[in-house]
């Protein structure tokens, strides 16, 4: 196995493009290093991207917040403007693993790992985040929702890597939230995760709503119909009940070691209701 630590994106993508056998991008390494210890792991190349300029920066640009692929989740938490604009995304990122893990792991890695239970992904999808994807053919912007295809499988082509995640600018009266269910209090993996992103009109009516569900399908689920039920409401009890039912209906989970179909569908609704309430309150405070 070859280890490379390129200093430019071009070097990184050409290494990845030219790799024989399986090639992996190493950012925080919190998934990759564990997998490397497994008996079945085989790799021809590991490309460590942390020395590439800009990879470990959060920049506030005209596009919004540009989060380099090497930025650890803990750094999101320490970025006051980002935290103020996207508290739901930041919280989701900081539910991953332990404090030590959060000091290494990245949202780009969480996304490319393509686990349906990834915590930061529903929050990013609800937020309308884009991935800046670089490859031998140049750079393209891809909605985060289109990166994972199935468990462990992404839409990235050979030689491509995520350079940054871009979170859009925030209007006034906007708020987001992410909640997940785990049987423990921490150090666990989502049985259900729900991201909600709302913007309100001046009278407190929901103007736009985005809801994304994690761990209830082979990839993150965009609950468009459920989100629509919130538009025009002020999150009255009936609106929340409708949202919950719609989220349960949008879920297509499986029975597995982490939960049952019935449990996941129920809890998706419960968490959607609770996350919507938090997002709404946050939006109202701005």
């Amino acid at each position: 196995m070859r280890y490379e630590r390129p200093e430019t994106i071009d070097q990184a993508t050409s290494l990845l493009a030219g790799a024989k056998g399986k090639a992996f991008v190493l950012a925080g390494g919190t998934d990759l290093l564990v997998r490397m210890k497994g008996d079945d792991f085989e790799a021809g190349l590991v490309v460590d991207i942390k020395s590439i300029s800009g990879m470990r920066d959060i920049a506030e640009t005209d596009e919004g917040f540009v989060i380099g692929a090497g930025v650890p989740c803990a750094a999101l938490n320490e970025h006051a403007a980002l935290h103020a604009a996207w508290p739901g995304v930041v919280e989701a990122a900081n539910l991953i693993g332990s404090t030590q893990i959060q000091g290494r792991c990245t949202v780009s890695g969480n996304l490319c790992n393509a686990s349906p239970a990834a915590d930061s992904v529903p929050a990013m999808v609800a937020a309308g985040a884009q991935a800046k994807v670089s490859g031998p053919k140049g750079t393209r912007m891809v909605p985060v929702v289109d990166i994972p295809l199935a468990p462990g499988k992404t839409s990235l082509e050979k030689g491509e890597m995520i350079e940054a995640i871009v979170l859009p600018k925030r209007p006034a009266r906007a708020g987001d939230a992410y909640l997940r269910f785990i049987p423990r209090t921490e150090m666990d993996i989502a049985v259900v995760g729900v991201g909600v992103n709302l913007t309100l009109g001046s009278d407190g009516t929901v103007e736009t709503a985005h809801v994304a569900l994690g761990a209830v399908g082979p990839k993150v689920v965009v609950a468009e119909a459920a989100a629509k039920t919130l538009v025009g409401t002020k999150l009255e009890d009936t609106a929340l009940a409708t949202l919950a039912a719609a989220c349960s209906a949008a879920s297509s989970p499986i029975d597995d070691k982490r939960g049952t179909v019935a449990f996941r569908k129920d809890v998706a609704g419960v968490l959607a209701r609770r996350a919507a309430r938090i997002a709404y309150d946050r939006a109202g405070e701005k």
Binding site: F181, P183, V191, G259, T260, A262, F263, D266, V267
Partner: peptide, 9 residues
């Protein structure tokens, strides 16, 4: 949690 929720339902 799934057993408790199922029992409650």
């Amino acid at each position: 949690p799934p057993r408790i929720l199922a029992a409650l339902k």
